[in-house]
């Protein structure tokens, strides 16, 4: 299995997620540079959190137009599993692999804290090791995590079972529509989420709820 983590200038969770992938896979992922226009064929591609290109202009928008993203989109369309976390989720919406947009948090401030999530869809490539409806704790850390889409898109997400995670009742940190914390494409192979599973993947960091995202995808792909 080949895993790749895309490194944009300003990515800052690239190492964190690489640590989790290595722990799950037993092999370090390839760290792929934003300016490259080649990406070795990858079974798993991760777009990490951070502030790609400083998040100037609009979060994720410049990253979505970087040379490497043409390759990411091409491989995604051929069946690679893609996970976008936080800024990576913003990039996925900006490049059109996932619908909707991440707006500024309703409270207007950056928010970093643990949130309780419900695993709404455990049939994605990344969530098979969770029980449907299971409640897990995973932290968020963002200023623009307020998921928004028009009513038709939201309905389609619901109808196609494309809502992967929701914030548990009363724990929505950003005002996202339908309490959406993460979504997937209809195939379940492309997942974008604001919470950071890589930050809660070992007991020393307070819990292991995020770990099954990584062991799950490795199991699914190996």
């Amino acid at each position: 299995m080949q895993a790749s983590v895309i490194v944009f200038p300003g990515s800052n969770c690239d190492r964190d997620v690489a640590v989790c992938i290595e722990a799950a896979m037993g092999k370090a992922p390839l760290m792929a540079w934003h300016g490259d226009s080649d990406l070795p064929k990858s079974d798993l591609i991760v777009l990490p959190g951070g502030f790609s290109y400083g998040d100037y202009l609009r979060c994720g928008s410049m990253a979505a137009n970087s040379p490497i993203m043409r390759e990411v989109v091409a491989q995604a369309k051929k069946g690679a599993a893609v996970l976008g976390i936080c800024n990576g989720f913003q990039v996925l919406t900006e490049c059109g692999l996932l619908p909707g947009v991440l707006m500024q948090n309703k409270g207007l401030n950056f928010v970093c804290r643990n949130t309780r999530l419900t695993v709404t869809n455990n049939k994605t490539a990344f969530t098979a090791q969770y029980k449907a409806g299971e409640e897990i704790t995973v932290p968020v850390a963002h200023n623009e995590g307020n998921y928004f889409a028009d009513d038709d898109t939201l309905k389609r997400l619901q109808d196609d079972d494309c809502i992967a995670f929701t914030y548990a009742a009363g724990d929505n940190p950003n005002g996202a529509c339908l309490d959406i914390a993460g979504i997937c494409d209809p195939s379940g192979r492309i997942v974008g989420m604001m919470p950071h599973p890589e930050r809660r993947a070992e007991a020393a960091l307070g819990g292991e709820d995020g770990k099954r995202m990584f062991s799950g995808i490795v199991e699914a792909l190996s």
Binding site: D16, F110, C112, A141, L205
Partner: peptide, 25 residues
């Protein structure tokens, strides 16, 4: 205050704000 700070990035924060001392691996 501290929820506006990313206290967990780098994946080594064992004890963040609110303790007597912070612990970073």
């Amino acid at each position: 205050v501290y929820e506006q700070y990313d206290s967990m990035v780098m994946g080594d924060t064992l004890a963040g704000p609110g303790g007597d001392a912070a612990l970073v691996r």
